[in-house]
């Protein structure tokens, strides 16, 4: 079913919009959530919460890109759940790629106060990367894929993936320093 048709069902308050979404995007949303939470049960709950969030937000929202919209929702829900889990000490390292990203920015109050700005800078930064690195960067830091699974998808060796990510983080660090962040 086309995304526009599914969104149409949401607007008609037809519950089959949920099943249509689950059928088309369920596995992919589950994959993102599992990458972030590292737990199947949590991932299933996050995906269900995503359907509910979509049901509650459409309408009035009419997303231009329905898949990206759902990805963003499931990602935020999964990150929140991971944060809560970490707070309860359920696991030491909940979000595996967070520690990698920590290396590009200093943990200061000044930086913490500029979280809104970061999204804008990151978006601009990713667009400056070459196509291969851009896709690898997004797979790693948005979708939460491991280097092994990125290697499987791209056909590039794990060391190559790590090397590209390392260089990209280094460039990001330079950009953030230039933008006045503490690095």
């Amino acid at each position: 079913m086309l995304d526009s048709a599914i969104i149409g069902l949401f607007f008609e308050r037809d519950e089959s919009a949920i099943s249509a979404t689950a059928e088309k995007y369920g596995k992919r949303l589950f994959g993102i959530s599992e990458n972030i939470t590292g737990c199947r049960e949590d991932a299933e709950e996050c995906v269900n919460d995503t359907y509910l969030a979509a049901w509650n937000s459409i309408p009035p929202t009419r997303p231009d890109n329905y898949y990206a919209y759902l990805c963003r929702i499931v990602r935020n829900i999964s990150l929140d759940r991971a944060d809560r889990g970490r707070a309860k000490k359920r696991s030491a390292e909940v979000v595996p790629f967070s520690s990698e990203l920590e290396s590009v920015l200093a943990d200061t109050e000044a930086n913490a106060g500029r979280s809104e700005e970061l999204s804008f800078i990151l978006d601009g930064f990713i667009r400056t990367l070459d196509a291969d690195t851009r896709l690898i960067f997004i797979r790693r830091y948005f979708y939460g894929d491991s280097a092994g699974s990125i290697s499987e998808i791209t056909g590039i060796g794990e060391n190559g993936i790590y090397a590209r990510l390392f260089r990209a983080r280094k460039r990001l660090m330079k950009l953030l320093r230039k933008e006045g962040f503490d690095v």
């Binding site: 990698e100 990203l101 930086n111 999204s119 990151l122 978006d123 997004i138 948005f142």
Partner: peptide, 23 residues
């Protein structure tokens, strides 16, 4: 903490970027 902030900030990237990196 800052890593999590960056992780959350990644959610704010453009729809086109997210969709282009679909598996």
């Amino acid at each position: 903490m800052i890593g999590e902030m960056l992780s959350h900030a990644m959610s704010g990237i453009g729809d086109d970027l997210i969709a282009s990196a679909d598996e």
